[in-house]
């Protein structure tokens, strides 16, 4: 009897060790919802509203992927992560994808074993100071106290920038955007630095946004994009092509308003392939034929998402700039749907 118990225990141990990770897409489908890592709260990009419903530009990306997989943009469990916890959350499988204004860098892609599926916002690091300080350039910040979110690329850029310009500063590491805001507004730091889009979003939530200025220097390239774990290309493809579908939809003039009309078939074969009335692109991804229709209907195409959450008519008021379509002089350029 002792022997059987012992052998039984061995078998259980062996089974547990042998259980290899199945494909993320299958896991997500089996679970019935997408676990998406977002920020702990950055207005415009990802923040819960008064009813607890998550809204924002990055949230839109999560919802589009959920819609492409399930046809339901609400089938998302949002997992708030800090700059420090996000990679562990993704690597451990707690979330299926991260849409959390994360900069695409070599070491994150190669060494940290993640796969960036594209860029959904071309950004750069900036500085915000109170207007009363009378500073007009980041090079005048010698000796300043700088609030910075820890665990981000901005922390490294900041060190490089001040070192390269041979000026000193006092870093105040902070865990979340909300804490940074509190310290900055109380005057415990002179400067708040993060991605320029994040600065605009943070400033928009201030009582008096006009009392603060974003300095003209952009000290880094910060291509922000959604990312998934390395080594599961099928799931990476789903996220990548959902993002591309949103970008291509804007380029092709497909919006949430006219999509039902266009989905019935048009004279443009590329639109037909994208929306599934021609070809079998959806099937190749392991999704339904109208996956892109659902993804675009979830929150609109890339341009609609941008205008609704962070565009010039919102309190955040970001111009398209580099994030315009390539046809308008921007950097957005989706590979063809063919």
């Amino acid at each position: 009897m002792k022997k059987t118990v012992f052998l039984g225990a061995l078998t259980v141990a062996g089974l547990a060790a042998g259980a290899a990770a199945a494909g993320t897409l299958d896991d997500v489908k089996a679970r019935g919802k997408l676990n998406c890592g977002v920020t702990t709260g950055l207005v415009g990009f990802a923040a819960p509203d008064a009813n607890g419903v998550w809204n924002g530009f990055d949230v839109g990306m999560c919802r589009a992927v959920a819609a492409a997989v399930f046809g339901d943009p609400a089938a998302v469990e949002f997992v708030p992560t800090t700059g420090k916890t996000r990679f562990t959350a993704l690597a451990s499988g707690e979330v299926d994808m991260l849409a959390r204004n994360t900069t695409w860098t070599f070491s994150r892609d190669v060494d940290l074993k993640f796969e960036f599926v594209g860029v959904n916002y071309y950004d750069g690091q900036g500085f915000m100071v109170p207007k009363a300080l009378g500073v007009s350039s980041a090079k005048e910040l010698d000796g300043a106290t700088v609030c910075i979110q820890t665990g981000t690329t901005t922390e490294l850029n900041l060190a490089d920038f001040f070192r390269a310009n041979n000026i000193s500063y006092e870093p105040v590491p902070i865990e979340t955007n909300a804490e940074a805001q509190q310290q900055y507004l109380a005057g415990a730091c002179d400067v708040y630095t993060t991605d320029a889009s994040g600065l605009a979003a943070t400033r928009a939530s201030f009582e008096d946004p006009s009392a603060h200025v974003v300095l003209p220097e952009i000290i880094s390239k910060e291509p922000l994009g959604p990312l998934v774990r390395h080594g599961d290309s099928e799931w990476g493809d789903v996220a990548r092509w959902t993002l591309n579908a949103l970008i291509a939809a804007e380029e092709l003039g497909v919006t949430s308003a006219n999509i039902d009309e266009l989905a019935k078939g048009t004279n443009n074969p590329e639109i037909n392939r994208l929306l599934g009335s021609e070809g079998n692109l959806g099937e190749m991804l392991g999704l339904s034929a109208d996956w892109a229709v659902k993804a675009i209907k979830a929150g609109g195409n890339y341009g609609e998402l941008f205008e609704k959450n962070i565009g010039e008519n919102t309190p955040i008021g970001l111009a398209r700039g580099l994030n315009a379509q390539w046809t308008d002089g921007g950097l957005l350029y989706s590979p063809p749907f063919r």
Partner: peptide, 24 residues
């Protein structure tokens, strides 16, 4: 300490270093 941004060993080795190198 990290709750108030004090850079103790949890903040350096277990915080920024871990985060930037991915060697959890």
């Amino acid at each position: 300490a990290i709750a108030v941004g004090y850079m103790d060993i949890t903040g350096t080795l277990g915080g920024i270093t871990m985060n930037q190198t991915g060697r959890e």
